[in-house]
Design a binder for these strands. Structure first.
Lengths: 155, 155
DNA sequence: CTAGATGCAAACAGTTTGCGTCACT
DNA sequence: AGTGACGCAAACTGTTTGCATCTAG
């Protein structure tokens, strides 16, 4: 199979063992247009490899992200975060410590759709995350200390 | 107290009972510049009301969101979502069913920072979520059927 | 042959729920 | 007085981990 050859090449390139389950997980991911949850991937792969475990799916998703084969759709801050700012605004999010800082709407060039949105999609608003590394984390990575905590440098 | 009067007015406006714990939760939220986790709010409020329970914090956060006093910083899709698309792109996210569809970068006007980012913040990239209601959910709300599932209409 | 991958089950973190009691209005 | 809020503990969901076994290279 062609597919298999491609996948083996991909694995070789990223220093990964070309496992049957890994291949199915990867191909399932690629075959779906959306961004399926781990559960959903698990369910699909299970139709081909009934003995696969959900933990294997999780381990592989992380492996893929670590090795740069995939990226996370959006960083999850790990818990419910709430916003008391009623002005339209956006967020600067630190990719290391996940701290979130508000950014005024005017700090960004105005955003508009150029073409049509996906068929039938009713646009409500644009939410922009400016992703990067915050001052505290940048400093930390020069003279590394303890593990970063999201709240070391919150008011 | 002034604060207390303001808070009572806010509650009256939103049809909520002006509870001591509710007030402390609210004021804690407002006093922090960042977007603290429920745990963090709990820890802070506990210094003033040691008997408060974490469940109360959660209940109030949700109440505040329902009543429009607060909004969620960003919708959490509830599970790890992964992206195999290596082209720069953005996402259309349905606020009802949380499905995610890729949008080409060129479909949006280019985004740039106008002023300086927050002090010392090293910008890496912009992630835009176009928030709205997808076609399937819009249709569903006309002739409502069963509960929406994020995957009813994924490939 | 050996490092790394898998599968299982148990552990975790964050969040929600049910329910009896209590407190705003 | 009555509705809604609180506090507690137990339940749940999504995710991670430890470990014995297996397999790709």
């Amino acid at each position: 199979m062609d597919r298999t050859a491609d996948f083996r090449a991909l694995c070789r390139r990223h220093g990964l063992a070309a496992t049957h389950q890994r291949q199915l997980i990867y191909e399932t991911l690629m075959s779906l247009t959306g961004h399926p949850s781990p559960e959903m991937v698990y369910e699909r792969v299970r139709r081909k490899i009934p003995s696969i475990s959900l933990a294997t799916v999780y381990k592989n998703l992380h492996t893929f992200v670590e090795r740069g084969v995939l990226r996370e759709v959006s960083l999850h801050h790990g818990s419910l975060r709430v916003d008391a700012n009623h002005e339209p605004h956006h967020h600067a999010v630190c990719m290391k410590c996940k701290s979130i800082v508000d950014i005024q709407e005017e700090a960004l060039t105005p955003i508009r759709l150029r073409g049509a949105p996906p068929a039938g999609f009713q646009v409500e608003r644009f939410a922009v995350d400016v992703l990067g590394i915050c001052a505290a984390c940048a400093a930390r990575s020069h003279r590394p200390r303890k593990t970063a905590s999201p709240f070391d440098h919150q008011s």
